[in-house]
């Protein structure tokens, strides 16, 4: 999926995450997490898997994680990507995959 414009999704409340995405010439993921020591690698893995599932190959993705569960992270990444692109949601692709 092509990232056409900057977009943001999520909140900075505890248990949530904010995901900012901007057009970029490669895929770069920057994570700041309140639970970095315990779950930093897991957060990065979930973010990258979600981006891969959506076919995002070029974007700068900045995640500020406040202890979001995996599904909330996925949802926030998906929302940011949808807002940053021009393609309509394909529910088969979005919900069809393994979660």
């Amino acid at each position: 999926m092509l990232i056409s414009r900057p977009a943001v999704a999520g909140t900075l409340e505890s248990g949530d995450a904010t995901v900012r995405i901007t057009p970029h010439d490669s895929l770069e993921v920057v994570v700041t997490s309140s639970v970095e020591a315990q779950y930093g690698d897991a957060v990065r893995r979930v973010v990258r898997q979600t981006l891969e599932g959506l076919g995002v190959a070029r974007a700068l993705v900045t995640v500020t994680d406040k202890g979001a569960l995996d599904y909330a992270l996925r949802a926030r990444v998906e929302a940011a990507v949808m807002r940053a692109g021009d393609e309509p949601v394909d529910w088969d692709v979005l919900i069809g995959g393994e979660r």
Partner: peptide
């Protein structure tokens, strides 16, 4: 509305 919908379906499947 869009982000809530995505949060809902991710929660439903988790």
């Amino acid at each position: 509305k869009d982000s809530a919908r995505l949060l809902a379906i991710n929660a439903l499947t988790s």
